[in-house]
Amino acid sequence: MILGLYNYWVVVVLMMIGFYIVIAHGNLIKKIVGLSIFQTAVFIFYISIAKVDDATAPILEEGISKYSNPLPHVLILTAIVVGIATVALGLALAVRLNEAYGSIEEESIQNQDNQEC
């Protein structure tokens, strides 16, 4: 039972690792990496729910009547594109932040802001 659902365990563990990095790390690049892991866990989750026991890839073929659900894969292709755009934008912002503040550490940026106010 528990072992049979092992990819869901992978999903949960990856998700928590990613989420923890986003929250706990002060480095802007690491935060983006964490976010990316977090999103990837969700992608694996979608792919896992598409699996049908004893079924093959959804290609029409003689003698096969059980197919896995192809829809989640298509959905995740879209979500991957969204994820890439997010990571690209986040990294671009990190580059600009580094130019403006001379640092990619959350604490240092926050300190510089607090002095200005």
Binding site: P72, G90, A100, D113
Partner: peptide, 27 residues
């Protein structure tokens, strides 16, 4: 203002977490 960059970055992190949560829910 350079703080706009920082605000946008923080919004990006929070917004993406929010959107991913919605994605999990829909899944």
């Amino acid at each position: 203002d350079r703080r706009a960059l920082w605000a946008a970055y923080q919004y990006l992190i929070m917004g993406t977490i929010g959107a991913t949560f919605i994605l999990i829910g829909i899944g």
